[in-house]
Design a protein around this nucleic acid. Structure first.
Lengths: 220, 220
DNA sequence: AAATAAATTTAGGTAAATCTAAATTTTTTA
DNA sequence: TAAAAAATTTAGATTTACCTAAATTTATTT
C-alpha cells in the first residue's frame, strides 16, 4: 500500500494525539494539521474505508493496528532523516524538523533500511526521541522525562541514548554516569527542563534533550 | 518560487527533450511524461503564465532562461541523490533512478548544498552524467560520448570523471590513461557502447558508462 | 431539563492535475 | 493542391484535498 503525503500526515497526527486509550477529536486534529474541521471529517471517512482507523460520527477516531504500524514507519523515516541531517550534514537539531517533514514521505523501504544501516542503527533521533525499527517496533527504553514523571522518586541511570561526543562531553561536565542515583525535583514547563538532585551533590537543572537521553530504572 | 512535483517534472522533461534550438512537441512531452497530449496542453498554458517557457498554440515549446535554471537545479538534486545512494548507501547504479525521481522534489536548497559538500562535490553522477553546481552551471567537461559524436577523429584523454576504485580498476585493465590517443570507430545504438581504437593497440569496445567518464580534447 | 454553547458533520464549491471525446490546425501524401 | 493523416487544442468530466456556510449532534449551563 502507498498513501498520499496528506494521508500520511493525518495518520501521523492521530498517532501522536492518541495517548493511552482516548480517542482523538476532529477539532484536535484540525488544529494539529492546521486545517479545518470539515476537511478532517472528509478525510476520516476515506481513511476509515481503508481500514486505517476506527471512526464513528461525533465519536472521534482511533488508529487500527494497521494504522499504528503505518504511523510508526513514517515516524521511523522522519527520525532517521533527522539523525542523518544532524550527524552527517551538520545541521542543528532545531532546524531539521521541517526538512524531515518532506523526506518522511519518500516511499522506498529499501532506502530507509539502507539509511538505517549507514547511520549505524541509531535508537534515538537528535531530539532524544526513540526511532522505531524496520518492523515498526519502538525500542523500549525507559526514559527519564515521560509525560507522567514522578518527582522525588529515587532512580538509577542504566544507560544513555546515542553516544555522540557532544553528549559525552555534557555527561562528563555534569558528572552523570551509569549507576548514578538521582531524583527529579521539579519540572519547568517553560522549556521542559528538569531540576535533578544526584546523591552527594547539589541539585542542578538539565534540558529536556539531555533528559531524553538518560535511561533509568527505579532504585531497588 | 516553489513548484509542484508535477510542474517540476514537466520542466525537467522539456529540458531533456530540447536539444540545440529545436522546440519540443506536445506529443513528445506526453510520451516522455507518460500522460496524454491534452493534459500537456493544459499544463503548458499554466507554465507559460509563470514565464517558465515560451509556448504558442500548435508551435511547440521552449524553456526560458528562468525555466532552464529551474531544470538544472532539479537535475542537480537528482544526480546528487543518485550519487549518495550509490556511494553511501551501496545501491547499484541501475536501481537509483526511481528513488532519485522522488528525492529530487525535496525543496530545501540548504539540504542539497550540504549534501554536495558531504559527498565531496562530485562532478558526475553514477551514470557518468555531469552534476550542475549550486548556481545551476554544468561543469564544462568535454565528454567522449556526446550525441554528436564524430567518428575517426583523433582525440586525447585529458581527465577522468569521479575517480572511484571501480573506475580505476577498469581503466587499468583497458590501459586507458591520461594522454592516451584514441579514435571512436563506431557507436552501437543497441546499448550506446563505443568501439574505440587506441594508438598501437587493437580496437575494443567500451560501455557508455565508461565513455561518459572519459574527458577528451581534440588532438593537436 | 431547557436553553445555550461548542463540536461536528453535511452540502455545495474550488483549484490542481488528470482524463476522454470532439473539434481544429498542421503536415503529409497521393 | 486537395484529401487524408497526424498532431494539437478545446470542452466537459473526474479525483483529491481542500474550503465556507448551514445544519445537526453533543456537551454545558443556568
Amino acid at each position: 500500500m502507498k498513501y498520499s503525503s496528506s494521508k500520511e500526515n493525518y495518520i501521523k497526527a492521530i498517532f501522536h494525539l492518541q495517548k493511552s486509550n482516548e480517542s482523538v477529536s476532529t477539532n484536535a486534529l484540525a488544529n494539529a494539521l492546521q486545517t479545518k474541521p470539515a476537511s478532517v471529517t472528509d478525510m476520516l471517512k476515506k481513511l476509515k474505508e481503508q481500514k486505517i482507523l476506527q471512526y464513528e460520527r461525533y465519536k472521534g477516531v482511533r488508529l487500527t493496528a494497521e494504522g499504528k504500524k503505518i504511523a510508526l514507519l513514517i515516524i521511523r523515516k522522519h527520525r532517521l532523516w533527522e539523525y542523518f541531517l544532524v550527524e552527517k550534514l551538520q545541521f542543528g537539531w532545531e532546524e531539521v524538523h521541517e526538512i524531515a517533514e518532506e523526506l518522511e514521505h519518500i516511499s522506498s523501504k529499501k532506502l530507509i533500511d539502507r539509511l538505517d544501516d549507514f547511520l549505524g542503527n541509531p535508537r534515538k533521533d537528535p531530539h532524544g526521541d526513540p526511532i522505531p525499527d524496520a518492523n515498526g517496533k519502538m525500542p523500549v527504553l525507559q526514559q527519564i522525562s515521560l509525560d507522567s514523571i514522578e518527582l522525588n522518586k529515587p532512580m538509577e541511570i542504566t544507560g544513555i541514548g546515542n553516544q555522540t561526543p557532544e553528549l559525552m562531553e555534557l555527561l562528563q561536565r555534569t558528572n552523570i554516569k551509569i549507576g548514578s542515583k538521582l531524583e527529579v525535583k521539579k519540572k519547568f514547563s517553560f522549556d521542559n527542563s528538569l531540576e535533578i538532585k544526584m546523591r552527594n551533590a547539589a541539585p542542578f537543572i538539565i534540558s529536556q534533550f539531555l533528559a531524553k537521553n538518560l535511561l533509568v530504572k527505579d532504585e531497588e
